[in-house]
């Protein structure tokens, strides 16, 4: 009886998960599998393609030998680490600030979220408009307050192109990270703070010995999510800089796109995507393990 029940439970559980698995399996998993397989063969986009065959990692070898893979990998890491660090620090600070009873707290909370509802495409254009070197408002303001002397061509400068795209990416991603952290904060019981206050703990004391430790789990989740998000940040980079100047913003996503659609070499494009998949997978597994083991 018990086993029969359990079998039925399992059946019920599987039936429930079926629709989601079918949709994702057919529309994401199969294409991904096909794409990964493409990374190991010569596959350029042409008519009457001869049978494709295993090419002994030639795509990977090419990408490594030309240094493109390494360059993109490095840029992607810089991009991801920079954006995610800034996101977490800012989101935690802001969430703590806006979780206090301050005047206009509700309204402030809402408006901080606004960039999130701006479609990425529009966000990219908006930042291009602001950063325009000759008549953009960023250069004007920075010169007015004396931070720069000459206008800077933000998106056409080797030092500044990547940071500029990072700022735009930060701007677009911040609200989501913020709201998750805020949600986490609100789930911390108020009594903890109250008793800490009775014990005479100051504000920073409370933040560092109650809030941050209790937010640990949330921060872990948020880091993982924003790392994945940042890796995927393609339309923003592609619209704003096209990977230039001189490859200064050529992230893995851009490289993959360029190999596939500019060179029409889908084998190489898929190889890049595979490297990316492996990077993110390894990171997520390691990250989840490391953080968890330290917890106990």
């Amino acid at each position: 009886m018990v086993t029969r029940l359990r079998v039925r439970d399992e059946f019920f559980g599987l039936a429930l998960i079926l629709p989601a698995s079918l949709i994702v399996g057919a529309l994401i998993f199969l294409p991904v599998a096909q794409s990964v397989a493409m990374g190991f063969v010569d596959y350029t986009l042409r008519r009457n393609q001869d049978g494709v065959s295993w090419n002994n990692f030639a795509n990977f070898v090419y990408l490594i030998e030309t240094g493109e893979l390494w360059n993109s990998w490095r840029i992607t890491l810089l991009f991801v680490i920079g954006v995610v660090t800034a996101l977490i620090v800012a989101a935690v600070a802001m969430a703590i600030a806006l979780n206090q009873r301050i005047p206009g707290q509700r309204l402030l909370r809402s408006v901080v979220l606004l960039p999130w509802v701006t479609p990425t495409m529009i966000a990219a254009l908006l930042w291009m408009w602001i950063l325009q070197p000759q008549y953009g408002v960023a250069n004007f303001l920075l010169r007015r307050v004396g931070m720069i002397e000459q206008p800077i061509s933000w998106l056409a400068s080797i030092q500044w192109a990547l940071p500029s795209v990072m700022v735009a990416s930060f701007w677009r991603q911040f609200p989501f990270v913020f709201i998750v952290v805020l949600a986490g904060l609100q789930s911390i019981p108020v009594e903890l703070y109250e008793s800490a206050m009775i014990d005479g703990a100051g504000f920073s004391r409370r933040v560092f010995s109650i809030t941050i430790p209790l937010l640990r789990n949330v921060i872990r989740v948020v880091i993982l999510m924003s790392v994945i998000q940042s890796f995927r940040q393609f339309p923003l980079v592609w619209t704003m800089t096209g990977g230039g100047p001189i490859d200064a913003t050529e992230t893995l996503a851009v490289l993959s796109y360029k190999q596939s659609f500019v060179n029409l070499n889908f084998g190489r494009g898929s190889a890049v995507a595979t490297v990316w998949l492996v990077t993110v997978l390894v990171f997520s597994v390691l990250f989840t393990r490391l953080v968890r083991t330290r917890e106990y």
Binding site: A20, S21, S35, L252
Partner: peptide, 18 residues
Amino acid sequence: FGLLSTQMFPVVGIVIAL
């Protein structure tokens, strides 16, 4: 786990197959 791992693959990689 399979569901979550699909989040880690670039979208541009799958448009042709799709």
